[in-house]
Amino acid sequence: MRKPFLWATVAFMLIPLYVLTVNAFKGQQDILENPFGFGGLTLEPLGTALTNPQFNVFKGYAITLLFVVAVNVLSVLLAAPAAYVIARSPKRRFRVLMLFFLAGTFIPGQVLVIPVVYVLKTLGLMGTIRGFVLFETVLTLPFSIFLYAGYIATIPAVLDQAAAVDGAGRLRTFWRIVFPLMKPAVATMVILNTFSVWNDFVNPQIILGPGSGLYTVTTGVYAAVSQYSTDYTVVFPTLLLAIAPLLVFFVFMQRHIISGLTAGATKG
């Protein structure tokens, strides 16, 4: 019972991927007449999608990667030390600070984007990479701090005290002694943040806007596909190009991705 059921589910999960892949290599007529079969395979639509002036897949990937790396680095640099202080200090004010950050996890990002436009505009950061990266980083902070603080609490405080006795300052103690032990929690957050930045649509669409000439894979796909959503020779190859590298990456890294999530969840 269990195995056949699981295999049926697997088929159901993979059918869309199959339809996407096989139709990315067919002409409109073949797609309409025989959406699930092979037949009339051609590389032409893929070639056209690759050279689409509105959406350069490689540029989209490069920009998105830059965002992912920048947001992750910044997020760790900001959230980890703050979480350390919150977790280790007995002072009431830091407990309040934790609640203050925690409240942020319940604010839907999409809803924020409108007022954020004005904040960024005031700071002169609207339509810039910096503005976008800073805002995305802030969106990661509440949950990161929550996760890190929970994790740090499980690391014996004796370790820091030993370092303090040796004369190391607080900053040094954290980065030298505690931070290296936080690897699983950091890995979890990096995975989560990577997905959320990569797949974000509203924020890059509105913050970057058409004037900047910058697009992520997601907003690029929207620009390339939405006007032509009935021309399947545009839709399928573009979608395939947008997801293929990511899927390959996922399949190779799945052990780390899934176990990263799991580790974070069990050790938090």
């Binding site: 830059l66 920048a70 950061l125 609207m126 339509g127 990479i129 910096r130 800073l134």
Partner: peptide
């Protein structure tokens, strides 16, 4: 905040065309 344009990533393509 705004002070480190040259640090990590360049903003040459910013919107203020």
């Amino acid at each position: 905040l705004t002070g480190c344009g040259g640090g990590g990533f360049s903003d040459s393509e910013g919107s203020q065309a």
